[in-house]
């Protein structure tokens, strides 16, 4: 098990941000890079990151299980995370959650049978004024999501 040369290059750039004796500081970024390449973090992937940064594997597991944006299981091709906190809820995100669950036929934390979508409930994403907010694969944020815009988003994610 290894990561691609371009992923390793990215991790090296992250390691360079911290003092030479503090490579562990790069573990969050290294796990992000690894997840971007593999889609999720298997034990083998985390063990590789541990070895690469010279950390005990258990410390990498601790980090991966603490921060909620890491995928500890395979997800659908597109992970949709909807913020359902109070401010977003007041602006229609809970209704958007109902709409998505009905439309996809799954509940939160489930994946569609065709493996295309995983639906997650997220906590505050810092975009409250533009609710409802949907984050796709941890990277692309879509805001002010009406039912029409949700339909359009689902259609565009092949």
């Amino acid at each position: 098990m290894t990561l691609s040369a371009s992923s390793l290059e990215k991790i090296d750039r992250e390691v360079a941000k911290y003092p030479p004796d503090q490579k562990q500081s790069a573990v969050m970024s290294a796990l992000i890079v690894a997840q971007d390449e593999k889609g999720w973090l298997s034990n083998e992937t985390m063990d590789f990151v541990a070895g690469y940064l010279g950390m005990p594997p258990v410390q990498v597991y601790e980090v991966a299980t603490f921060y909620t944006m890491y995928n500890l299981k395979p997800t659908g091709k597109y992970k949709l995370t909807l913020c359902t906190c109070l401010p977003c809820g007041l602006q229609g995100s809970l209704a958007a959650g109902d709409y998505l669950r009905e439309k996809l036929g799954i509940d939160f934390n489930e994946t569609t049978p065709d493996g295309r979508f995983t639906l997650k409930e997220g906590e505050c994403m810092g975009a409250c004024a533009m609710a409802p907010v949907v984050l796709v694969n941890n990277k692309k944020m879509h805001d002010s999501m009406t039912n029409e815009k949700l339909d359009e988003l689902l259609r565009s994610l092949k």
């Binding site: 503090q22 562990q24 500081s25 790069a26 573990v27 969050m28 796990l31 992000i32 940064l53 950390m55 410390q59 601790e62 980090v63 603490f66 921060y67 909620t68 944006m69 890491y70 997220g122 906590e123 505050c124």
Partner: peptide
């Protein structure tokens, strides 16, 4: 990467240290 508590300054420092 998805932990509200890291807005607390000493939690943030722990997180910066890779914990």
């Amino acid at each position: 990467y998805g932990a509200y508590i890291c807005g607390e300054e000493t939690a943030l420092l722990e997180s910066l240290e890779g914990k």
